[in-house]
Amino acid sequence: CHSECLGNCSQPDDPTKCVACRNFYLDGRCVETCPPPYYHFQDWRCVNFSFCQDLHHKCKNSRRQGCHQYVIHNNKCIPECPSGYTMNSSNLLCTPCLGPCPKVCHLLEGEKTIDSVTSAQELRGCTVINGSLIINIRGGNNLAAELEANLGLIEEISGYLKIRRSYALVSLSFFRKLRLIRGETLEIGNYSFYALDNQNLRQLWDWSKHNLTITQGKLFFHYNPKLCLSEIHKMEEVSGTKGRQERNDIALKTNGDQASCENELLKFSYIRTSFDKILLRWEPYWPPDFRDLLGFMLFYKEAPYQNVTEFDGQDACGSNSWTVVDIDPPLRSNDPKSQNHPGWLMRGLKPWTQYAIFVKTLVTFSDERRTYGAKSDIIYVQTDATNPSVPLDPISVSNSSSQIILKWKPPSDPNGNITHYLVFWERQAEDSELFELDYCLKGLKLPSRTWSPPFESEDSQKHNQSEYEDSAGECCSCPKTDSQILKELEESSFRKTFEDYLHNVVFVPRKT
């Protein structure tokens, strides 16, 4: 048989008469490798580009789960590009990614509803959504962080984005990388972005840091009482949809009607710091009717980097990364020049730590249904340095008659930039024990000054392991946590139920 035959053949030295091919099969003959313009397919066939392209389009058009959109890589027609490569849609070739590779997620039936953290986790790592997304989240724990972890990498949506009755959302900033909504599939009414009845939605994105392009379709905003109209108009300008909307697409009466839409800028007039305090004062603000001013709200939190936005980490279910302080308005003076500047002394802060701070007014709604208010920009203030805590785990070892090696770990709280350490030492008198000992005694162990690591005695271990207080009263049991108490109650309830079950099964009433 021919060298490319495997198993047997019907005619000697003829690659077209093989029972099976050793390498690849091409047009009725066995070959060692697939010549151009053919590609290896499933490690035994040679196919042309049209064959591989037909497989790709067949799966793409069917949208069946589990099928493969075949691509070409290293002269092979394979189910998908290997790690580190992405497909070129024009020629199906796998090309190296520039940075992290995109991950295209194809949605069944063309859309997916995100109504819980669990459903959001199914899209973790996706960068391109081939379909439409509907966000409908009523509640949950730590929602802002969970949504950002699972949806934060999405850069492109081919269909539309719909935010509907998501009472738990305060902001859409968890879509931190969303840059493009194509609108290839539109919501009824030709809408590519749809926001309806979101009672706590206050911000779409921080438009000073976020760009969003909507290729096709219109915007729809109705019944978002805490979303200011200025935020919607800003989205029109940034996304390129200005002029597409009709009169009733953006409701003037049901958007922002319960919001404090600040239209003035508060400026800080005085800032002073110490290692654990920050004193702030800002310019006074009074609405047209000074009785509408209820006070100020001061927001602050630790910020290692200057990239904080107002609604980071917030949701309507209680999660809030900001510390909020309510401040009463100052006494009002008739003389504008003698107006008191409101302020606040922030206490209990960490030394040498940068804080993000902003302040906003708290006002009631005027009778004319106009909203007044003022808010400052987010500023960054760093507390002063102070003395560091003591170095940890000092170790001293003498390696000769004239040297001592000293080692330690950095302090747990540096409280500033540590530039150097101060080492103090003092000579001590020799131990009298060394002169009084009889060095001729056998088995004498000389006193040693070398360091030995501390260890816990058996008594201390027994005390720590004991669940009861000892007789001397030195140790006591740790208080039980809520989960331990709940577990004990469940076990007790189970024992009672099981005992009742045994009584009912074992003891049967005697027939009379």
Rank of each mutant, 00 (worst) to 15 (best):
H233S: 12
F268R: 00
N198R: 00
L266D: 00
L294T: 07
N141F: 10
L349G: 00
N248G: 09
Y355L: 01
I378P: 01
V104L: 09
L147A: 04
G152D: 00
P342K: 03
M235G: 06
S173L: 09
D384S: 07
N334P: 10
W286A: 13
D393Q: 09
P411H: 05
K360V: 08
S401I: 07
N190R: 10
V308K: 06
D393H: 07
E111S: 15
K337S: 11
N211I: 14
A251W: 14
L219V: 06
S321R: 13
P288V: 15
R164L: 15
F193Q: 00
I188N: 02
G189Q: 02
D384N: 13
F275R: 15
G140I: 11
N263L: 05
F358T: 03
E262V: 05
F221T: 08
R332T: 12
R291C: 09
W286Y: 06
R347T: 10
R244F: 06
E368T: 12
L133Y: 02
S338L: 11
R202V: 11
I214Y: 02
G348Y: 02
V359P: 00
F290P: 15
N198C: 01
Y285L: 13
L133I: 02
P329Q: 15
C261I: 03
L107K: 03
D393P: 04
S319R: 12
W322S: 01
G125H: 13
P351A: 05
A144H: 12
Q216I: 05
F174P: 06
I135A: 02
I135S: 00
A144E: 14
P304F: 12
L293R: 03
I357S: 01
D257K: 13
A303P: 01
F221R: 00
K162C: 11
S321F: 07
L153D: 03
Y167P: 15
L212Q: 05
Q121S: 06
D289A: 05
S158V: 07
I157R: 01
G217K: 03
N141D: 06
D312P: 10
N263F: 03
G131I: 00
L219P: 04
M346D: 00
L349S: 01
D315G: 11
F175C: 03
I137K: 15
C228Q: 03
L123Y: 10
R291S: 12
L219T: 03
T185D: 05
G139W: 06
T371V: 08
N141I: 10
H341N: 14
Y380E: 01
G159D: 01
S239P: 01
S171G: 13
L153H: 10
N136L: 11
P388N: 08
W282T: 02
S338F: 08
K301D: 05
I378N: 01
L294A: 05
R281K: 12
R247I: 13
D289S: 07
S173N: 12
L180M: 05
V390P: 15
S239T: 06
F365Q: 10
L345I: 10
R332S: 10
F299V: 06
N399A: 12
Y372K: 10
G343A: 11
L392N: 06
W322M: 04
L227T: 06
G131D: 01
T323S: 07
S269Q: 05
G189Y: 11
W408K: 00
T215M: 08
F221G: 03
L186K: 07
K409Q: 06
T309H: 10
C261D: 02
D367A: 04
G295M: 15
D257C: 13
G217Q: 02
I214K: 01
Q199W: 14
V381S: 03
T371C: 01
F175Y: 02
E236F: 12
L266H: 00
T241E: 08
G343Q: 14
R138W: 01
D315S: 11
C261Q: 02
K267L: 08
H222S: 08
S239E: 01
Y355R: 00
Y191P: 05
I163S: 02
D289H: 06
S319P: 10
D315Q: 15
Q339W: 05
T309P: 06
A385T: 13
S402M: 15
H233F: 08
F268Y: 04
K253A: 09
L392T: 08
D326K: 06
G189N: 14
S119D: 11
V359Y: 02
S132K: 02
T273P: 03
H106M: 13
T213F: 09
E368S: 13
N224M: 10
L196D: 05
E148T: 10
R176K: 11
G217A: 02
C126G: 00
L108M: 13
G343M: 13
G140K: 03
M297A: 04
Q403L: 07
E302D: 07
T241I: 08
N142Y: 03
T241S: 10
F268D: 00
I135Y: 01
L266V: 03
S398M: 03
I154T: 05
Y167R: 10
E310S: 11
T241K: 11
L153Y: 04
D384F: 02
L362M: 11
R244Q: 07
A145L: 13
C228Y: 02
S171K: 08
S269L: 10
S166Y: 02
G313P: 07
W282G: 00
S192A: 03
Y305H: 09
D257F: 07
D377W: 14
I278G: 00
L392Y: 13
N387H: 14
P351T: 12
E246L: 09
L147S: 02
A259H: 08
P329W: 04
R370Q: 07
P336H: 06
G159K: 01
S319K: 08
I188D: 05
L107N: 07
Q339N: 15
P388Y: 03
S319F: 10
I357T: 13
A303E: 02
G240Q: 15
L349V: 06
S274E: 09
P388M: 04
L196F: 03
N224A: 01
V117F: 12
D206C: 08
S158G: 05
T383M: 09
D292K: 12
I214V: 14
L151W: 03
D115Y: 03
A251P: 13
K337W: 07
L180H: 08
F174E: 00
L279K: 15
T353Y: 08
D312F: 14
D326S: 04
E155R: 15
G256Q: 04
S260H: 07
C317N: 13
E184L: 11
T213V: 14
D393C: 15
G240R: 12
G110N: 04
D206L: 07
L266N: 00
T185Q: 13
L252W: 12
S376T: 09
P330L: 08
L196R: 09
R138I: 14
R291M: 10
V381C: 00
L107V: 09
K267W: 07
L266Q: 02
S321Q: 10
L227W: 00
E156F: 03
A168S: 01
Q306A: 14
